Simulated assay, not measured.
Amino acid sequence: MSHQHDRPTHAPTPDARALDPRSIEALLAVVARLRDPEHGCPWDLEQTPRTILPFTLEEAYEVAEAIENDDMAELCEELGDLLFQVAIYSRMAEEDDAFDFGDVVASITGKMVRRHPHVFGNAEVASEEEVRENWEAMKAAEREAKGQRVRTSVMEGVAQALPALVRAGKLQKRAARVGFDWETPEGVADKVREELAECEETFSAHADPLERVHEVGDLLFSCVNLARHLGVDAEQALRAANHRFERRFMRVEVCLGAAGKEPAPEYRDDMERLWDTVKHEER
């Protein structure tokens, strides 16, 4: 947590309006002014890394949405919002004498150079797979050099905070590296059908609710596995499906409204008919 009243004294903050708006110095000056104890913004002054974390996650997803929509103007704006998050985290850390924005830049620059010896050094690689293997080996060496515990399982290090579909895919990739994987998509498809059948066994009104949760989870996990074998990012695929469903249903609502109706159980047949029409029109 940042302690506003115990902040160290820093050099005077330059006026961001007098700086080149395209420069990182201008952004850092804006953030410094927002966090200034005397002249800053009351809301920004109250924030801590924990309180702005939800906004950071939201901004990352908005970047993803701009990319999926092929909207370069929106992507430019959303990347700016995301960069602001990096700048304000760095400012908070600087106030606590932990690190500053320059340290963040130096850290990632050094890491990228260090982990790409085939680009910035004399190392040679024969394939993308070899690049990934070298990357993991260097990460392990860096952890050991820092005195961090050497991982004893290939499953370690996959962040718990990741979206469930993303984390499932990463766990599966870890297992695949050591040969624990299906050989063909057909084998995974068989597993999906198996998991669906086990899920159907819980349809009974007397089924154990916890068992239903487990079986649905297994089904979703196997679907992620199938997506991975088909070269499809499960998270992006589901996001795209959500967008399609949303767009189509909104079109159904418009068509119902033109007939003086609105979505309701008594118009289920109308909605299904319109849904099929909308899908056909899109294709």
Rank of each mutant, 00 (worst) to 15 (best):
V131R: 11
R132N: 13
N134E: 13
N134P: 01
E136C: 07
M138A: 14
K139H: 13
A141V: 06
A141S: 13
E142H: 10
E142K: 12
R143T: 07
E144M: 08
E144K: 15
E144S: 15
G147I: 03
T152F: 05
S153K: 00
M155Y: 14
A159K: 13
P163E: 11
P163I: 13
A164C: 03
L165G: 01
V166G: 01
V166E: 14
R167S: 08
R167Y: 06
R167V: 08
A168M: 15
A168L: 11
G169L: 05
G169R: 14
K170V: 02
K170P: 00
Q172H: 09
K173W: 12
K173N: 14
K173M: 13
A175H: 09
A176W: 00
G179W: 00
D181T: 02
E183G: 05
P185K: 04
G187M: 06
G187C: 06
G187E: 12
V188Q: 04
A189P: 02
A189M: 15
D190L: 12
R193T: 15
E194W: 00
E195L: 05
L196T: 03
A197K: 06
E198A: 10
C199G: 07
E200L: 15
T202R: 06
T202W: 02
A205K: 11
A205Q: 12
H206Q: 12
A207Y: 04
D208E: 01
P209N: 03
L210M: 10
E211W: 05
R212Q: 06
E215W: 07
V216G: 07
G217W: 07
G217A: 07
D218I: 01
L219R: 00
L220T: 08
C223H: 01
L226I: 04
L230S: 00
G231Y: 03
G231R: 03
V232L: 15
V232R: 07
D233N: 09
D233I: 00
A234D: 02
E235R: 10
E235N: 11
Q236T: 14
Q236I: 12
A237W: 08
L238M: 14
R239A: 12
N242S: 14
N242P: 06
